[in-house]
């Protein structure tokens, strides 16, 4: 029976031929993909080890203090940071705090309903906050205002606008871009001990001392970037789409930072077992991707800085 179906799917002549191929794709997705993998190509004409086109646009949301919109293929994520003032805890009076939350609103995918939140959302949220806090990318001391009395609480919210595979990669990239774009507003301490905003207009007389004149942007040291690969028999597919993820269920996510340190390697089960050679291959694919992403991010940040000047 398989042979008959294969013949029907192989012919691609005219309108009738195209219908056969689409039906074959829906009915037998795994054999459809395996025939492509034999030729070392995927249905969207990408080679196995290359990722989709990525674009980053910072400053998309003007009401937030830092924001970024990242698109990889069809997966789109919007990250935005809002700063609020809090009083720091007793054991770390010099540190601010960063709270990361990942949302999957119903617009992103037909499987998410308004009453029932997506299963992936809390898992990805925890993974993102683990990676960002453990990667030592930002120093929480930079978020401090007045030692012991006031510090910044940064709420980083990431919304998935379209879910088409590799959600963690795109979410991490958008979080990193938003943090890189963050503009900390000028503030000063008023008489009651509360922090108020101060406009940057030099013609306005400010009787209050500006508290953080020199700390306007966060300094990022080792920035983490990631790549998700799928393992299937002997093949390794980089940057899968949602369709590929649903058929082949063994993802491996590798997060490397700019100093080539492994921040996280996440392989949550899956039918294929990962041999050391496959892991090394995934790590080297990630290294290449880190270079690509770093140049795309630098370009995006530079173009906004030029616009602002």
């Amino acid at each position: 029976m398989a042979a008959v179906k294969e013949d029907a799917g192989g012919r691609g002549g005219g309108f009738e031929g195209e219908m056969e191929v689409e039906a074959y794709r829906r009915l037998f997705p795994l054999p459809y993909y395996e025939r492509h993998l034999l030729e070392s190509v995927r249905p969207d004409a990408r080679p196995l080890s290359s990722a989709r086109d990525t674009s980053i646009a910072v400053g998309a949301v003007s009401s937030a203090d830092g924001s970024a919109l990242v698109k990889t293929g069809e997966t789109t994520m919007l990250a935005a940071i809002k700063l609020e003032v809090m009083s720091p805890s007793q054991d770390s009076p010099d540190e601010g705090s960063l709270a990361i939350d990942f949302h999957m609103p119903p617009i992103c995918s037909p499987t998410v309903r308004p009453g029932r939140p997506a299963e992936l959302a809390p898992v990805l949220s925890k993974q993102l906050s683990d990676v960002i806090s453990r990667s030592k990318m930002i120093h929480l001391k930079e978020l401090s205002l007045v030692s012991g009395k006031a510090a910044w609480m940064a709420y980083l919210d990431i919304y998935c606008l379209n879910a088409d595979g590799s959600l963690f990669d795109v979410a991490l990239l958008s979080a990193v871009a938003a943090l890189a774009h963050l503009h900390i507003p000028l503030v000063s301490l008023n008489d009651e001990g509360r922090i108020i905003a101060v406009s940057g207009d030099p013609s306005r007389k400010t009787t209050r001392e500006v508290v953080n004149k020199d700390k306007r942007k966060l300094s990022l040291n080792s920035v983490p970037f990631s790549l998700t690969c799928l393992l299937h028999k002997d093949y390794i597919l980089a940057d899968p789409t949602a369709e590929e993820e649903s058929i082949m269920d063994t993802p491996v996510t590798v997060v490397l930072d700019s100093l080539d340190c492994l921040v996280s390697l996440y392989k949550p089960g899956g039918a294929a077992l990962a041999l050391t050679s496959s892991l090394k291959e995934c790590v080297s694919l990630t290294r290449r991707r880190v270079q690509e992403l770093r140049s795309i991010l630098d370009e995006a940040l530079q173009s906004t800085e030029m616009d602002e000047d």
């Binding site: 930072d257 390697l265 392989k267 899956g270 041999l275």
Partner: peptide, 13 residues
């Protein structure tokens, strides 16, 4: 082969 692996914190490869 490995079935599952999760790591926290940065280390070299």
């Amino acid at each position: 082969g490995i079935i599952t692996s999760t790591s926290y914190g940065s280390m070299s490869v």
